[in-house]
């Protein structure tokens, strides 16, 4: 840009600002037009790439398998073919001939909700301590968390597999909850700490002067002020726990009645016995809660994740 200005011929430098803007009139105009049109091409291209797979999922989930195999190119469903039998098949229990996703949904729900409760219960005090209280080693805590992320999750899985087997927690939803809590607490602390730091210290000091203890300040002032962010953190933890796959696979694979939805879908999609359309219904069942939560709280959630990014 600066080179451009320097190299402009003297006659144009002397001219008033208006012509000077047109130093390269055609290049400028052509580029502007390309950018204006290109921008919409890009926006729509990305929209197609992100939405079409989900539309395809929804489409296949309301078709009979025969219709898909006969006419795989069709991108809509004829009213005469529209069916919800796929959902009945996938949700009903194995005893009544279905795939048992109803049970898996309950398992996933229990695991995810319990993980949220535990992660918040542990993470809120921890985040507050890192944000406000000068304890020993406070500066190293984040470093330790970060270092743990350098190792593949499967490395931790080996000892956990052994340890949980000995404790009788493997093949058990409780074991999964413990692992998810440990995995999400660092994330929860990272998100919550940013918020606790934005609570003005003066308000908390006023509380202290008024005779509250630190715990009182945390409980009655800081938590109430940070409530929206606590909610968004909870939702984020819920998503992580709901979507998790590797540990569910390692811990629960031989106990069908304890499968989560993710594990159930991955296991059944490997077999040829279950029709693709029925599995697509399972896929919708797995995805829908996340998409509903996400669209309801998108602003809250994205703000919490990128809180540090604005500073650059």
């Amino acid at each position: 840009m600066s080179a451009e200005t320097v190299m402009t011929p003297p006659s144009q430098v002397a001219a008033p600002p208006e012509p000077r803007r047109m130093a390269h009139p055609t290049r400028h105009r052509v580029q502007s037009r390309v950018f204006r049109i290109g921008r919409w091409v890009v926006i729509i291209g990305f929209l197609i790439a992100t939405l079409v797979p989900f539309y395809y999922m929804l489409l296949l989930s309301v078709k009979p398998i025969g219709s898909l195999l006969q006419n795989p190119a069709s991108l809509w469903v004829r009213p005469s073919e529209f069916t919800l039998q796929t959902y009945v098949d996938v949700l009903s229990s194995t005893a009544s001939g279905g795939q048992g996703f109803g049970r898996f949904l309950a398992n996933s729900g229990v695991v995810a909700l319990a993980s949220v409760a535990l992660a918040l219960l542990i993470g809120i005090p921890g985040a507050y301590a890192i944000a406000r209280l000068p304890f020993i080693g406070r500066r190293y805590v984040s470093g330790i968390f970060l270092a743990a992320y350098l190792f593949p999750a499967i490395l931790m899985a080996i000892p956990l597999f052994v340890g949980f087997t000995r404790l009788g927690l493997r093949g058990n939803l409780v074991g999964l909850i413990v692992v998810y809590t440990a995995q999400t607490v660092p994330v929860a602390i990272y998100m919550l700490r940013n918020y606790f730091e934005t609570v003005p210290e003066a308000i908390e000091e006023a509380g202290l002067v008024d005779g509250l203890t630190r715990m009182g300040v945390l409980r009655q002032i800081s938590i109430k002020l940070a409530l929206p962010s606590i909610m968004s953190t909870g939702l984020f933890v819920f998503m992580i726990a709901w979507n998790e796959f590797l540990f569910a696979l390692l811990f629960l694979v031989d106990r069908r009645e304890r499968w989560t939805v993710s594990l159930g879908l991955s296991q059944l999609s490997g077999s040829v016995e279950v029709p693709t359309t029925v599995l697509m219904a399972g896929s919708v069942v797995l995805t829908l809660p996340i998409i509903i939560i996400f669209f309801a709280t998108e602003r809250l959630l994205t703000g919490g994740l990128t809180a540090g990014a604005e500073k650059g």
Binding site: L121, I122, G123, P125, G126, Y128, A129, I130, R132, L133, P134, F135, I136, R138, V141, V185, I189, R214, M215, L218
Partner: peptide
């Protein structure tokens, strides 16, 4: 505060 901080941090 420091002692409380350590307490609050200990579950994590």
């Amino acid at each position: 505060d420091a002692r409380l901080g350590l307490w609050l941090m200990s579950p994590t």
